[in-house]
């Protein structure tokens, strides 16, 4: 008999599942990939076969124009892989279609969380705590300084800035997949019914969300407007466009950014952000540690982020843990 868990092996380019010869979120093209969600650092084109939720597959088709070998698996569904490996897709609460992948082999259970959060999000089902032997978790915001405030507080800040500046617009930098749609959906939930203007790079992804039944209310493209029409409105663009030439077409915008990094003042200053909105699609410190406590695995592996601090916490709470040195996973803009 082979040693416990020798069938799963972390590699700098992804997690390799030996008996099935497949990879989870590989950063290079492989024959067979299991993909947790559609962000570019986890999903990429060129695989022979891609196993993911239908939402993630649709996102990948849109973003990376890749649909070869697409194999959909719904939430709660299990797919039997070669070599006696079962893979079950479980909601991760990160973005539309995001999943944790539960792998079972020879009576051993391993969960790869992908990116996740534990807060409510109107655009995707919530994270489901699932018992396992090894939890392979992210740690993007794995420092105790990160304690994301309730999103309602941040929406109130945004709406109050809008109200007190009727002659300006508020330009919100938000990651084009996930964050932008969540901010829009949360604005709708907070009662904001006006047209929200979009940077061109946002449009198709918003339509895709709507196709999956997420109501984003009235949207319009900035490119189709004259400056004056956008006074007193919210405009959403990718973070990279905040300080770019593109934003010069707006009338004296208040620069906002929706990101977990906005917790740190200098991060906001570096991006010339006047209105930092601490909104993250990742688990904050308390969510990370709570998740490890609730899942209570024999061992925790940490894929990417501030892994040293989370390792230290595991050490302090007497949990077995190790950091995997994965390349290419990091959402600088989240």
């Amino acid at each position: 008999m082979s040693p416990p868990f020798s069938w799963i092996r972390p590699d700098p380019h992804g997690i390799h599942v030996g008996p099935a010869d497949c990879w989870i979120d590989p950063s290079k093209a492989v024959d067979k990939a299991l993909v947790t969600h559609g962000h570019a650092d986890h999903a990429r084109g060129g695989h022979g076969q891609t196993v993911a939720t239908p939402e993630t597959l649709a996102i990948m088709k849109l973003r990376y124009n890749t649909a070869d070998g697409a194999t959909p698996v719904g939430y709660g569904e299990t797919i039997r892989l070669p070599g006696g490996v079962d893979a079950t897709y479980i909601p991760a609460g990160h973005v539309l279609g995001s999943a944790q992948i539960l792998l079972e082999h020879a009576g051993e259970k391993v969960i790869v969380t992908g990116d996740y959060k534990r807060r409510a999000d109107p655009t995707c089902p919530p994270f489901v705590v699932t018992p396992c032997d090894i939890l392979i978790t992210e740690a993007t915001f794995g420092l105790p300084v990160f304690e994301h405030p309730p999103i309602a507080d941040e929406m109130a800040k945004l709406l109050s800035a809008l109200q007190s500046n009727p002659d300006r617009c508020v330009l919100v930098g938000a990651y084009a997949l996930g964050k932008a749609q969540r901010v829009i959906a949360e604005l709708r939930a907070a009662g904001h019914k006006d047209i929200i203007y979009l940077h061109g790079a946002m449009e198709k992804m918003c339509r895709l969300y709507e196709d999956f039944g997420i109501d984003l209310g009235p949207l319009a493209l900035v490119a189709d407007q004259v400056k004056d029409d956008m006074r007193g409105s919210i405009v959403i663009c990718p973070p990279s466009a905040l300080n770019d030439r593109w934003s010069r077409r707006l009338l004296d915008p208040i620069t906002a950014m929706a990101s977990g990094w906005m917790m740190v003042r200098q991060r906001a200053r570096q991006r010339n952000v006047e209105l930092p909105l601490v909104i993250s699609d990742h688990a904050d410190w308390n969510e990370l540690t709570r998740t490890i406590e609730e899942v209570n695995p024999q061992e925790t592996w940490i894929t990417h982020g501030r892994e040293e601090a989370l390792l230290r916490w595991c050490q302090l709470t007497q949990r077995r843990a190790r950091a995997l040195s994965m390349v290419g996973y990091e959402d600088e803009d989240d």
Partner: peptide, 19 residues
């Protein structure tokens, strides 16, 4: 705060008062 967690946090935030 655990001294190691403090040092890691301080280095990331870059400002003692803010951290």
């Amino acid at each position: 705060v655990d001294p190691i967690l403090w040092t890691l946090s301080r280095d990331f935030v870059g400002d003692t008062a803010e951290c």
